[in-house]
Simulated assay, not measured.
Amino acid sequence: MLNSFKRDDYAMISMMVFSNNEQKVVGRKDRGVEVPSDFRGKRVGVTKGSSGHYFISLFLTTHGLALSDVELVDFKATELPQALADGKVDAISTWEPHIRKAKKLLGKNAIEFLEPDIFRTDFYFVVKKDFAKNHPEVLKRFLKAMKKAETFIGSNREVTTAIVSERLTIDRELVVSMWPDYSYQLLLDQSILVALENEARWAIKNKLTDKTQIPNYLNFIYPAALEAIKPEAVTIIR
């Protein structure tokens, strides 16, 4: 989303996977973190400008708090589990597999907070606009192949998780445990626009950009290829 304030030469041709439960918060019980109200005055590790940063803002708002009620500490996502284990922060807000790594490091001292209804994490296929304009048939062939993959994933969970584990060098047991949190499907729905606009407002409010106007995110979506391959998946209002 932040890149949309800097450049407009790219477009999304489809979502490929989404999750309503990828973003989570993990705290240390020995730092007095037991319920959401305990976050007031605590140090929370995030990756500045990331979905984890945005999620902690939504999480706090949901529970009557604000970002100003906590002290945010910036870390790379891969550093967050160890930062929590080392006591550099009282809690972290991030995504998988870092959440599970943090819980493993803390053991019984970990407490996890889930809020599956406040944020959907989306992953997209993105191309340069010039490429989309000059090679529309290539995009259609690509999405046709991805549609076959979508069907394969839905019908072959055991094989698919094995492939993901091998290709990403992630423990198979971890992949299997995370799998139900993700939905693999080609999609361009209205929620994409709503989410991007909300995130852009948040970024402006929290001075993550020097821009003051929200981009028109319809200009960042190229629906023609998906409409040709899977028309029922395109429900964006234009």
Rank of each mutant, 00 (worst) to 15 (best):
A149D: 11
W179D: 02
E166R: 12
E166N: 10
S183T: 10
F152V: 11
E166Q: 09
Q185V: 07
A162K: 14
T169Q: 14
E158R: 07
S155C: 05
I153E: 00
E150G: 07
I163T: 06
V159G: 03
W179G: 00
T160Q: 06
I163E: 03
V176Q: 10
S183Q: 07
L174D: 05
S177E: 07
T161W: 03
T151H: 09
V175W: 03
I170S: 02
D171T: 12
S155M: 10
I153S: 00
T169R: 14
T151C: 06
T161L: 10
G154L: 05
A162M: 11
A162G: 12
Q185C: 06
L174E: 06
I170N: 01
D181Q: 13
Q185R: 09
P180W: 00
V175H: 01
D171K: 15
S165R: 03
Y182F: 15
V176Y: 03
I153F: 01
E166H: 12
S155F: 07
T169W: 07
A162D: 06
V176P: 07
V159H: 09
R167V: 15
V176T: 13
I153L: 05
Y184Q: 03
T161M: 15
E150P: 07
T160E: 05
D181Y: 08
I163C: 04
R172A: 12
A162N: 07
Y184L: 05
E150F: 05
W179S: 02
E150H: 09
T169V: 13
G154N: 06
M178K: 04
E173K: 15
P180E: 01
T151W: 03
S155P: 02
Q185Y: 04
A162E: 09
N156G: 06
F152T: 09
T161S: 08
E150K: 10
E158P: 03
